[in-house]
Design a protein around this nucleic acid. Structure first.
Lengths: 339, 339
DNA sequence: AAATTTTCATAAATCGTTATAACGAGACAT
DNA sequence: ATGTCTCGTTATAACGATTTATGAAAATTT
């Protein structure tokens, strides 16, 4: 029960292996010359291939052609809902491109990122989609200078000439601030991460400038939470803010939103009676919270779809000079938590 | 800037390519003969390899040896938290085995499962971890008869001689029932899926037998919810059960638990005052629910770890007759929702 | 009818490894 | 001195495809 090879088919059909190869990878073209295959023989070969249940050997194909039809996706943590959703979209869409995907999680660790990329390159991926993390800028720049197709996702990396898919993070927090300010609240504080990721930084800027627009510069307060012991850190922040008479919180990420709501709930602070909030990203957890949550929504599936499309375009030879940036727009979902 | 090959190293060191190959894949052994390499030359070759930044070409290696160092994992939906967590564990652990993982989601569709497995086989995976779905039994049996190493996860498939990692599903619902019955409740109803997946079936059996043990056979009521419009279906069930004076609900899965809680919350039915519940699996959503939830916890990370270990053992030639079944034990986490 | 082009097919050279048989040189025993 | 072993190494044939140059026959032009 040996696997059938191109050679078996050639024997069976009484033709050369080259011809079979041409038929199989049907674009049968060379640099300038175009190899045409006779319709009848072509069909005969296809038929025999089907009968013998021929499956091309990918390793051989890759060895000779240099193409793996595999791409690598490096993200923060595939067990995080946001990235898991993106992963799922990429997986589905890649199927259409007849391309398989391998994933890797960095845990926001630049060393791991570097490692993963190297492993993926050793595997011979045709291209990479990468979510940069703090400290990975230099490496990513060098990566972009190599000739491996690359698409950045979710977070910027300065001075890199490559395609990218980003959220309009500034607009996201503008929406959040407006939702509250338009209801007459002015003491709006922001809870963000300690990490200097581009998306966080931009969200902070969005918050700040929108506050200024409403003439609330003096009320600007950004709390930067370390990545570990989020709950404990937020609790401190919230307690002191409440003591100062804060009216509302805006959150910079999904995780922070959930942790913040839990803190408020544990403190017995009701929303929106005692304090208002606007969250970031949807979560099934919101459904079990007593009050419906106002939040900024990002088009999650678009991240995956657009990033993959850009990468594929890039791989199939689009000219390397026209790198595109896709800017996704956030949307405000209004609930009672901001009233 | 061509990639350096084994041949470059051989030239540089003035030895044959074969010797370099032996050194690189250092277990240099044949069927019976063992090829020893001189310590000094070995070190010299290694040194040169390091200097030239040698990266073995996986495609060539695979073509010749037949091994890909890649495994496939077929699960229900990688964007579902339970599976995402498992995926993450597998990913991390596979790194230690110097092995990459490709994932695929079936959406509980036997056709997709079959398709994914075929794609993975074409890719040449060394082995598979599969979460069966309804209707895939025949295909999985045929798969198990092939000589591709296979490990089943989370759900049974009858008459298949292969390794597997399962939860003790019966015990899981026994725990759930006990938690309620021990508090004096007797009208305990179960909410399960319509699907005849082995894990669901076993959970139903666990519920039923534990109810009998408490002498509550007459109160046994299992509600089977179709996979679509879960919320609406559960709502109907809950409303009529409440009208009949139900005291408590036990849920068969995570998704059902969340949906159930949301229904209760929307109906204004407070837990545990009006009705008691025991959930399945942890969820961050529980943290935002007013009452702490009593739930059956599965050792999620163990699924990934044990499945991968079994598969690796299987791949590296453990005798095919000794297939193992790992039975993971559930644990009860007690909150207020069952009081 | 000769010249030219087009069409279809083939042979042979890779791609970078691994696996196996064989081989020379000393060591050791006969 | 001859034969047998072991040790370290080499030559070479795969592995299964793609790619290129080349060729022979058929179709077209001149």
């Amino acid at each position: 029960m040996k696997k059938t090879t191109i050679r078996d088919i050639a024997n069976e059909a009484g033709v050369s292996v080259a011809l079979v190869s041409f038929v199989m990878s049907n674009q049968s073209r060379s640099a300038d010359k175009v190899y045409k295959v006779n319709e009848t023989t072509s069909r005969r070969i296809l038929e025999i291939a089907r009968r013998l249940d021929y499956r091309p050997n990918k390793a051989a194909r890759t060895l000779r052609s240099g193409k793996t039809n595999t791409i690598g996706v490096v993200l923060s943590d595939i067990s995080n809902k946001f990235f898991a959703d993106i992963a799922r979209c990429i997986e589905d869409r890649a199927y259409g491109y007849d391309c398989t995907v391998i994933f890797g999680s960095t845990d926001e660790n630049a060393g791991k990122l570097e490692n993963l990329v190297k492993v993926f390159m050793d595997k011979g991926v045709d291209g990479l989609i990468v979510v940069p993390c703090v400290g990975s800028e230099r490496f990513i720049r060098s990566l972009a200078d190599s000739d491996l197709p690359l698409v950045l996702m979710d977070r910027e990396c300065s001075d890199v000439n490559t395609s990218r898919v980003m959220l309009n993070n500034g607009a996201a927090l503008s929406l959040a601030v407006s939702a509250l300010a338009d209801n007459g609240y002015s003491k709006i504080e922001m809870i963000a991460y300690d990490m200097r990721l581009s998306n966080i930084v931009e969200r902070e800027a969005g918050y700040r400038s929108k506050m200024e627009e409403y003439g609330l510069s003096d009320n600007v307060a950004i709390h930067r939470i370390p990545y570990k012991d989020i709950y404990g850190q937020i609790r401190e922040v919230v307690v002191s803010a409440l003591a100062r008479g804060v009216e509302a919180f805006v959150f910079a990420t999904n995780t922070l939103t959930i942790a913040g709501l839990k803190v408020l709930s544990d403190l017995g602070v009701t929303v929106p009676e005692k304090v208002r909030i606007v969250g970031f990203d949807d979560s099934e957890a919101f459904e079990l919270y007593g009050t419906s949550i106002t939040y900024v929504s990002q088009p999650v599936e678009q991240f995956g779809i657009r990033a993959l499309d850009l990468l594929m375009e890039h791989i199939s030879g689009g000219d390397p000079l026209s790198r595109k940036t896709v800017m996704l727009q956030p949307r405000l979902v209004v609930g009672n938590s901001s009233q």
